[in-house]
Amino acid sequence: MIGRKMNVRLLDGAELPRYAHDGDAGLDLRITHDVTLEPGARATVGTGLAVEIPQGCVGLVFPRSGLASKHGITLSNSVGVIDSGYRGEIGATLLNQSDETTTLDAGTRVCQLIVMPFVPCELVPCEELTETERGAAGFGSTGIA
């Protein structure tokens, strides 16, 4: 099932992205140029795409799990946010977390774009927040198992 329409501008000879399988949430994005990453290095790469995220939605750019688990390549910021007003090329800052130098060829799928609706909130200043069972208990408050 396809939902909303999204305008896509192809740059640098990029191909239109697609969902790998019916029901997939993410569109695989490919890099337009070769990149070599030394261990611990970062590089910002272009995907050759500019998109028009529908109003009321946000584009979220996630790393590809196979690239991370097999080669230690992930996104340096974990998840990128593309607001509906942005019209520039989608970029991805890759991070090599492995002990080996890795070269990725142009056309390699490096991340995936998920478009989803969001709920804007009106911020209301207050003196107190309502109490909950959890309260202010934060990191690790539910244990490790």
Rank of each mutant, 00 (worst) to 15 (best):
D12E: 12
A14C: 08
A14I: 13
A14P: 05
L16T: 15
R18Y: 04
Y19D: 01
Y19G: 00
H21Q: 08
D22E: 14
D22A: 14
G23W: 12
G23R: 11
G23H: 10
A25H: 00
A25F: 02
G26N: 01
L27I: 00
L27F: 10
D28M: 03
D28R: 02
D28C: 01
D28V: 00
L29A: 04
L29M: 11
R30W: 00
R30D: 00
R30T: 07
I31K: 11
I31A: 10
T32F: 01
T32Q: 09
H33Y: 03
D34C: 06
D34N: 14
V35H: 13
V35A: 12
T36F: 13
E38C: 05
E38N: 13
E38R: 15
P39R: 09
P39A: 03
P39T: 08
P39W: 10
G40D: 14
A41T: 03
A41Q: 14
R42V: 09
R42W: 02
A43C: 06
A43Q: 10
T44K: 12
V45E: 00
V45P: 02
G46W: 03
G48F: 04
G48L: 06
L49Y: 11
L49Q: 07
L49V: 11
A50M: 02
A50N: 08
V51N: 01
E52Q: 13
I53Q: 02
I53C: 04
I53P: 00
I53H: 05
P54A: 02
P54T: 03
Q55L: 12
Q55K: 14
Q55G: 05
G56I: 10
G56Q: 11
G56N: 12
C57E: 13
V58S: 05
V58Y: 13
V58M: 13
L60K: 11
V61H: 03
F62T: 13
F62R: 15
P63N: 08
P63L: 04
S65T: 15
S65L: 10
S65P: 08
G66H: 07
L67D: 08
L67Q: 11
A68T: 14
K70I: 13
K70F: 14
H71I: 06
G72I: 14
G72D: 11
I73Q: 08
I73D: 03
T74Q: 12
T74V: 09
L75V: 10
L75Y: 10
S76H: 15
S76Q: 12
S76L: 11
N77C: 01
V81W: 09
V81I: 15
